[in-house]
């Protein structure tokens, strides 16, 4: 399953790469792209994974890098 999310207050390319690396390591995530230019997160998750749970975990990863950055669902 593939889904796109808008990301707010993502203001450094360096951080976006860090977030992407962390999100990719979440169990159930097959691929993740944190696009700094379009301010969008693309998540590809396993079919049996729960999207809501994964987005919660992804938000944790994002907050660790930048406290103001937020994934919009």
């Amino acid at each position: 399953m593939k889904k796109k999310f808008k990301v707010e207050n993502l203001d450094c390319a360096h951080c976006a790469a860090k977030m992407e690396d962390a999100i990719k390591k979440i169990p159930g995530v097959e691929d993740a792209v944190m696009n700094f230019m379009t301010q969008k997160l693309t998540l590809e998750i396993a079919d049996d994974a729960n999207m809501d749970e994964i987005v919660d975990k992804a938000q944790e990863c994002v907050t660790k890098v930048s406290i103001v950055c937020e994934i919009i669902r």
Binding site: C12, A13, H14, A17, F36, M37
Partner: peptide, 13 residues
């Protein structure tokens, strides 16, 4: 390394 990390992808974009 901010100058590089931001400006290189931006140049391509």
């Amino acid at each position: 390394p901010c100058a590089l990390v931001i400006s290189v992808p931006m140049g391509f974009f």
